[in-house]
Structure formats: structure tokens, C-alpha cells
Write a protein that binds this DNA or RNA. Sequence first.
DNA 1: GTGAATTTATTGGTATTACCAATAAATGGT
DNA 2: ACCATTTATTGGTAATACCAATAAATTCAC
Lengths: 243, 243
Amino acid sequence: MKNKRMFWNIVEKIETLIDSGAYPPGSRLPPERELAESFSVSRPTVREAIIALEVRQRVEVKTSSGVYVLEMQQDKQESKPVSAFELTQARALIEGEAAALAAMTITEAELAKLKLTLDAMQKGINADQADKEFHVIISNATRNNAVSLAVENLWRLRDSRDEIKAAYKNVCSQSDSDRLEEHRAIYTALANKDSQAARSAMHHHFNRLINSLFEVSEAKALEEVKRKSSETRGLYSLNHLVS
Amino acid sequence: MKNKRMFWNIVEKIETLIDSGAYPPGSRLPPERELAESFSVSRPTVREAIIALEVRQRVEVKTSSGVYVLEMQQDKQESKPVSAFELTQARALIEGEAAALAAMTITEAELAKLKLTLDAMQKGINADQADKEFHVIISNATRNNAVSLAVENLWRLRDSRDEIKAAYKNVCSQSDSDRLEEHRAIYTALANKDSQAARSAMHHHFNRLINSLFEVSEAKALEEVKRKSSETRGLYSLNHLVS
DNA sequence: GTGAATTTATTGGTATTACCAATAAATGGT
DNA sequence: ACCATTTATTGGTAATACCAATAAATTCAC
């Protein structure tokens, strides 16, 4: 069943035409009437599609002149490919510092909430959600919204990449106990208000994760791929951080 | 001159109605025909407005049922207020780690580009742009796009807040020489591939900045505000980082 | 009386047509 | 060759009609 309304199909078709290069940025689209005829729909439908494209900032409508293709403002978020290794390394660095900061500012209430996530993770129900909560609570405990935002953005990045989600799924599910133990260590450091220890524990957490990622990717890879992996292994290593 | 097309006005009116609480999330808007009458426009015009709102994810159209108001998905980017102090502290932490990482991976070409920004800054032309380039080059030198994105997002955050831009403007313009000197120190550390020194130099850079921000804000503030400031000064201090 | 099936009214979806206003191209006069 | 005028093109808005899906009201069977 195609429940979509007609004009969404037209949006898609026009967008495809633009992306194919048939109508480069700055050029003018055919008049509404022509588009309507060539797509075998009515003019209002074409108008609706054009309005949708206009709201999306893909085209600009100049009254009595025509519809012009706008420059693609590429989301840099989308343009830069990010691997699971990069993401994990970035998380280690940023969340490591966040933990160090949080150790000085965290409240008893937040420590209690952290404890709850540990319990939830131990019971194994919604372990992944408890994982996320754990990290978010810590980032908020920094009392620094810029840091919170940075951590949230990394999480968003993780969720927006299917290959990263897949990679994490492989790793997390097979080492729940490690993850729990590491979270406990971070929690203890925070409870002790020990910045250094909190940073270090966070680094260890992600170091294990990154090594697991390498193991999985190596196990899957052919010999040739293995060689490349070992080259990049040095690049994303956290060995200089884990004391 | 109101060159805007009619339907944009309708979009505005409907959005105002929604924001005013007249149509809370989940509720149904009046039928197109009624809206057309009450706004004294034709039905197609109302349809166009609704489509614009739909593309913006403000409403959901259910065929033959009605138009329903969606939950405002507030950009957390916008909802969380971020002060210049928070931003600067976050930059210190994240860019400090970025510099430490970059020290191990930076290329000669990138060092040369860094040098150019130093020269530009010395000449005083486009000093602010040179500043930005300096930091971006370093984040890209990490070979970690997740880190690059994090740094870029912080910059975007800075540019999106007028009060932060204003605060930075006050501080940067009055201490160009300090900034240049600190950049040189960071450059030297990177050229020497000295991670520790690079991190430390970056921390010093932002530490000076944060202290300048405090001075400016204190100079401007009344006595009472001063007291609050000195309370939060401890919160955003980098003293635990600068050795 | 109650529940299910049917009918009816409402509502958005699409198409057709018409006319307006602004723009851009073609034309003509100087 | 240049400028003013005319003409054709193009998007903007409106009015209308009919369709299809939904939801409400009604009817009917039990």
C-alpha cells in the first residue's frame, strides 16, 4: 500500500532529478505546468511538492520567474564518515574529561541515580538504556551544558550510523559483565570525588571497548584486511592514556 | 512590501495558534475548510500552509481524519543555555585532548598551514578567522572525524549565541598578543610531537581566556553580581589542569 | 438491551479551470 | 543602437467538483 500522498512522490522525483545533475544549483526548473504534465499529475500537486522542497531549502521560488535550485548545504554531520573506532576514541577523550570534571561537582542525588543504572544493568533488563543513562548522568553532573551537549552529540552520532550501531551491538552483548564492572569502577571513583581515578576508569572502559571492536573486526576480516587493521590500530589506540 | 506568499502568513498564524496553546500537542486542528474561512483564504492556500508545517514536523496529516499537532521536538541545542564560561571550559577539555592526539598524527603540511595562521594573526588581518583555522586544523590533524565534529559543534555553538560572541569579542580584541603567543606555544609543542606539552599549552590558552572572561564580567558587574561570579569561578576553573 | 453491521456525514486528496500579477522576452518607435 | 511599449510566460490565488478514507450515527439482528 502506498499511503503516501501524491505530492511526496513528486518531491522524490524532483529531488532525484536535482541530485542526478539534470538541474544543477542555480538552474531553473521547468514551469509548474510542464512538470505537472510530465509527471501526469495536476498543477496543485506539483505546487505542493515545490513548497515541500522550498521548506527543505532545496529550491527557491521566484514569483513570476521560476523555481531555482539552491546550493546543497551539506550537513557536515552527514558528510564526514565516522567509524566506530573514531567514535569510541572520541568518547574516551571527551567522556574521560567529563568524568574528571563530574568527580568534583557530582551530587549525592546523581550518585544515587548512577547506582540505579548499575542495578538495572546487573539485572540485565534494558542494559543498553541503563548504559546510556549512566553516561548521560555523568555528563550532566559536570554542570557544564557545553560538555553535556558534546556528549549527547556523540551519542546521536552513534545512533545515526547503522554500521556503528551494529559494531557496538556485537561487542556490548558479548561482554555485559565487563561493562558492568567498568561502570562500577567509574562510579566508585566519582563517589570518592577522585578526578584522576574517574578519568582513568573511563579511559579503561573505552579502551576495553576499542580493543573488543578490533577483535571483532579482525575475526571477521580476511588476512588482507587484517593487515590494514593492524596499521590503524596504532592510530586509534588509547595506550598513551591508560596508565 | 509583503512579497511573501499568502501561505507563509497562514503558516505563521497557525504556528502562533499552536504555540499559544490553543491547539496542544496531540489535538486536532480545525478542518481545512474552516481554517480557510476563518483566515479568509482559499482552501488550497491553507493546504499549502499545512504542508509546510508538515515538512517542518510541526503537524501530522491523517488522511480523512484531520491534522494533528505533533510534540515539539525541541532542539536540545537551543533549549540548554550555555554560557561563555561553560563553552570555554568545554573547549579546553576537548581541544586539549585533540591537541594531545594531534601531536602524534599531525603532518608537516598541517604544521605548515598552522604556521600560516600564526603569520596572518601577527599581521593582524583576519585575526579571528586565523584563530578559527588554527583550531580547526588541529582538530582535523587528529585523524578522528568524531573529534573534528565535536570541535566544530563547539564552534557552531559559539557562533549561535550572541551573548557568547559578544563576550569573546570583548576578550579577544584586547589581548591579541597573548593569543598569538599561546598559539605559538601550541604550535611548538605540536611540531615537537609532544602530546603532554600540546595538551598543557592548549589548557593554558583557554585558562587565560576564561580568566579574562571573568575579569570582564567582573568589571561590568555590580557588587552583588561579583559575589555570584566568585562562587561560580571555582566551578569553571581550570586550575586542576594547568600544572 | 446489546452488539455488530450498515449507512451517513465529515475530512482530507486530487484534479480542473479560471483569472490575476509580476516578470522577462519580444517588438516597435525614435 | 537604445529606450519604451507590448506580449507571452510564469507563478499566485481562488473556486469548484468529485473521490476515498475515516469516524460517527443509525439501523438491524439477536
